[in-house]
Amino acid sequence: MSDVSPLTAALLRLSQAPGVGTVLLRQALEQARRGTLPSDPLDLLPADVAEKAATSEEWVASGDFLVGQLEAARRFQTRIIGPLDPEYPPALRSNPDVPPVLYIRGMLMPFIQRSVAVIGTRHPTRHGASTAWRLGRYFAEHACSVVSGLAVGCDTFAHGGALEAEGHTVAVLAHGLQTIAPRENAGVAEAIVDGGGALVTEFPFGTKPAGFRYVQRDRTQAALSNGVVLVQSKQNGGSLHASRAALRYGRWLAVAGATEQDIADGAPVIEANQILTHGSDTEKSLLLRVSAEQLKHVHVLSGKSDYENLLPLLWRQDRANDTELFNDADDLARRALHRREP
């Protein structure tokens, strides 16, 4: 069976206890961070919740759940990690919405904090599709991990561009790793893993896709990345979940401008782009649900030349994290192999 740390095993079991959701799991994690891991995982929960859970059928079955997850991890060549494990991405570990458990198939980058999420509609225009591809390729060529969600449309093109550049790309999924959704992107998923990238999810084996899980997936994409690039989106598009989360997490958001042809065609998938590139500050704030002050972190991409304007942000963040996160000389040497100074 795949090995997991004692804390990760405890969190997996606690996730099955009645009344325990993500909020209580994060609280249990914080308690474990402040002290030693108790012999009984229920001691990490509030007393009233632990008392009710102790005699429940769900808790009794949680041991079998853990064994089943470990067996599935071995079968699907997946690692299960928690926030205190060395491989856990630093950007996620310090996030307020930290996923208590991550399932990873493939390899994360040794400097995963230099990463860009490229997202957008499932039905891009021809220009949107080519833009997502170019962005994926561009950032991969500049030693960035390209993060997206493996959906059809912009996600697929972003992953494709990164793969064409033989770069690193991560697909964040809204379901367990026992399957790939949509099924038509199973080949893309395999290409990501074969190319040295990773499939990542916070959902256990057996979890099926559902609408609310895509919202969580979108937030994780933003948390995993230095910034988010919105290629195309309707005014009520799902890609706005990650866009809003990026600003809430203190990341930057870049928005691709629409072409004259797409504007003339009245393409619905550029509605959000038009507001964020040409609207008033009030309109932008309402769409992104942020303050006017936070809009200073929104950047407009009018063309490929503007991609370069995002690189200094990535390099500055990368260097700022060197001392704190990568003070081991061997880690720094490995990372130096991938550096391409702008």
Results as ranks from 00 to 15, higher is better:
residue 202 E to A: 14
residue 257 G to V: 06
residue 245 A to M: 15
residue 206 G to T: 10
residue 205 F to R: 05
residue 330 D to K: 14
residue 115 S to Y: 03
residue 256 A to I: 03
residue 330 D to E: 11
residue 223 A to M: 12
residue 229 V to A: 08
residue 128 G to I: 15
residue 117 A to R: 00
residue 121 T to W: 03
residue 49 V to T: 15
residue 7 L to I: 08
residue 62 S to D: 10
residue 252 W to H: 04
residue 227 G to Y: 02
residue 317 Q to W: 09
residue 26 R to M: 05
residue 88 Y to D: 01
residue 220 T to W: 03
residue 186 A to S: 15
residue 119 I to A: 07
residue 160 G to H: 12
residue 53 A to F: 14
residue 92 L to V: 02
residue 279 G to F: 08
residue 122 R to M: 10
residue 145 S to Q: 01
residue 33 R to N: 01
residue 161 G to D: 09
residue 303 G to D: 15
residue 147 V to N: 00
residue 303 G to L: 06
residue 189 A to P: 00
residue 125 T to H: 00
residue 309 N to R: 10
residue 241 H to N: 14
residue 164 E to K: 11
residue 34 R to A: 12
residue 155 D to I: 05
residue 237 G to A: 05
residue 94 S to P: 01
residue 111 F to W: 14
residue 103 Y to H: 11
residue 229 V to C: 07
residue 212 F to N: 11
residue 303 G to H: 11
residue 314 L to G: 07
residue 45 L to P: 00
residue 304 K to S: 10
residue 113 Q to E: 13
residue 227 G to E: 10
residue 320 A to M: 10
residue 7 L to P: 00
residue 101 V to Q: 05
residue 159 H to A: 14
residue 142 H to G: 08
residue 148 S to Q: 09
residue 18 P to E: 15
residue 104 I to H: 05
residue 238 G to H: 08
residue 145 S to V: 10
residue 176 G to H: 01
residue 164 E to Q: 08
residue 328 D to R: 01
residue 240 L to N: 01
residue 191 A to D: 15
residue 230 L to A: 07
residue 66 L to C: 08
residue 195 G to W: 10
residue 138 Y to D: 13
residue 315 W to H: 13
residue 93 R to S: 03
residue 284 K to S: 08
residue 144 C to V: 12
residue 66 L to D: 11
residue 145 S to G: 13
residue 50 A to D: 11
residue 29 L to A: 05
residue 286 L to M: 12
residue 162 A to P: 00
residue 118 V to H: 00
residue 108 L to Q: 05
residue 276 L to P: 01
residue 113 Q to S: 09
residue 125 T to Y: 03
residue 42 L to D: 10
residue 5 S to V: 04
residue 38 P to I: 14
residue 205 F to H: 02
residue 8 T to K: 00
residue 202 E to L: 06
residue 148 S to D: 08
residue 304 K to I: 12
residue 106 G to N: 03
residue 298 V to R: 00
residue 35 G to S: 15
residue 323 T to S: 12
residue 306 D to F: 07
residue 35 G to V: 01
residue 109 M to H: 14
residue 216 Q to C: 04
residue 42 L to H: 05
residue 338 H to R: 10
residue 35 G to E: 15
residue 151 A to S: 12
residue 136 G to Y: 04
residue 139 F to C: 13
residue 83 P to H: 01
residue 76 F to E: 13
residue 165 A to N: 05
residue 57 E to G: 13
residue 238 G to S: 14
residue 258 A to C: 02
residue 231 V to G: 04
residue 79 R to D: 11
residue 71 E to R: 09
residue 287 L to T: 07
residue 83 P to W: 04
residue 33 R to Q: 10
residue 324 E to K: 13
residue 197 G to A: 06
residue 341 E to C: 06
residue 10 A to D: 06
residue 295 L to C: 07
residue 196 G to C: 07
residue 161 G to E: 12
